[in-house]
Amino acid sequence: MEHTEVTVMEDIFERNDKIALETNQALSERGIFTVNIMGAPGVGKTTFLVRLIQLLAKPAFVIEGDIESDIDTKKLLDLGIAALQLNTGGACHLESTIIADAVKTVSLENGYLFIENIGNLVCPAEFIIGEHIKLLISTVTEGSDKPYKYPLAFEKADVIIINKADLSAYVDFDEAYFIKGIQALNKNAPIFKVSAKTGEGFGEVAAWITEQAKQINSSIKK
């Protein structure tokens, strides 16, 4: 039997990325600035969103991918925040196909879409899903070695949040070491220290996000 070698050279992520870029284009045309929220379980992704959304001038929608149960989604809906729960069936990250389908059902024009990714610092960083920016949440309670253990997440982030600042006095978070790690990986992402419990620092985050969203909208119009 004749064996022939065929050159392929196709990236494993190519098909995911292609769909993500189409979703991104569709969202841009609808004026929806989309943020992919990443962070380990319990860092405060949902609590952060509740705080942030209250400070934004335009309407917001949350796609909850984090867990199969709809506890977070119920919490958001009870607070009057539009939200949709994805059924991710134990996956370790979101992929572009599930988001491409979900955004078609989102009733929003001109606003913010926040996608709470699955609580995991490894896998979500490898898959774009249609976002304009990636927002990574870390905390003072997780330990300052996180950039060294999960470099890809810190490198890919467009903005990094250090949450639970209200607990700083109770933990020995080595902020200098944490920031040194981020600076090696990522020279552009701003770092905001906040507390989703007290609201400290959220004015700056809301102002930064608002500014980013404007730039995306003006670049679409060209």
Binding site: E5, V8, M9, A184
Partner: peptide, 21 residues
């Protein structure tokens, strides 16, 4: 000195396949 990330070590692709015709 400070190191910065590179793409080396992040490859993930199908290079080639062998087939029977």
């Amino acid at each position: 000195g400070q190191g910065e990330p590179t793409e080396i070590g992040r490859e993930f692709y199908v290079k080639s396949i062998e087939i029977e015709e």
